[in-house]
Design a protein around this nucleic acid. Sequence first.
DNA 1: GTCTATACGTCGATAGAC
DNA 2: GTCTATCGACGTATAGAC
Lengths: 184, 184
Amino acid sequence: MTVTLTTREAIARAAGQLFEQHGYTGTSVRAVAAEAGVDPALVIRHFGSKEKLFLDTMDLQGHFGGATLGPLDELGERLVATLIGPGRDVRFSAYRAMVRASDSELVRARLLDALEEMFVGPLTPRLPGPDAELRARLIGAQVAGLLDQMSLVEDPVLVSVDPALLARTYGAAIQALVDPPSHA
Amino acid sequence: MTVTLTTREAIARAAGQLFEQHGYTGTSVRAVAAEAGVDPALVIRHFGSKEKLFLDTMDLQGHFGGATLGPLDELGERLVATLIGPGRDVRFSAYRAMVRASDSELVRARLLDALEEMFVGPLTPRLPGPDAELRARLIGAQVAGLLDQMSLVEDPVLVSVDPALLARTYGAAIQALVDPPSHA
DNA sequence: GTCTATACGTCGATAGAC
DNA sequence: GTCTATCGACGTATAGAC
């Protein structure tokens, strides 16, 4: 029920919006300050640096939580459907903003941590068969790759294809890592 | 047999090295000029802008060519083995530099083009069964994701795991998109 | 035609006055 | 806490010397 925002909240809100819209480089501290209606020096004073402001503002975990829930059977298809389903825009723009800022070492570390917490961690103890952790990490790679093509470089074919077909097709490839490997 | 480099060549060589080493943001036009032993203004004069210098310098196609050759049988495993096999460092650093610079729209477009030319184009006409183009693009996504985790965020587990095991495991997931889908 | 010298505008960040 | 003034570094442009 807060009618007024604290200065810090106003800055964070403006920063999140501008970072997702124009990227890290394309968003100046001065632009954030103008959007929030405060002095540019205040932005640095409150958050320490532009980089910390970015990391404090961007949140991946909040958008992808629970994607690995449910039975292992057909988990691949459900996982993809969750990623590209309703509300995909907020997920895509958060991931896109992070990767675009990956020239920063802290941002890369955050990306690795987020993937670990959201996919590798929950998945590893549930996968049957050998090399469970490796397979969980490779499922994470598949997720990252799909997000790359759909939200970062925006492959027009993938963006506009029937989501159900995409979930079925890519889900099968993910399922190949969920199910225990069959040796030749 | 050229003993001396032209100014343009010297700039390009210095730029390529610095961009791969310190990223786009971490490499200043002035640093490139100093490394090449020329005046900073010359860099802009020869290449137009820092962004064009980056695009002229970075080359993905040259490093990944021919990864999709050979019989479709076990193509997945061979593809991964080629990506992470001997000389992986040059491939990884080229890809890493590009993604780190993906705040630029031109760089993102180049990434999409490169993946299309190297994987989607050669693969689409060869894949049996329905949705060949979609499956080829999703194989591209799998490749991008693996490169993300190994060369951009540098997942320590994936970087140090036995390459043969990795090729076998991730190769099986790629093979699931090479082979025609089996409907339930 | 190259190259040098210099300068412009903007950036992230800091110091110190209210 | 907030603003003013300012710093050094950046990408880029241009004028003019070889």
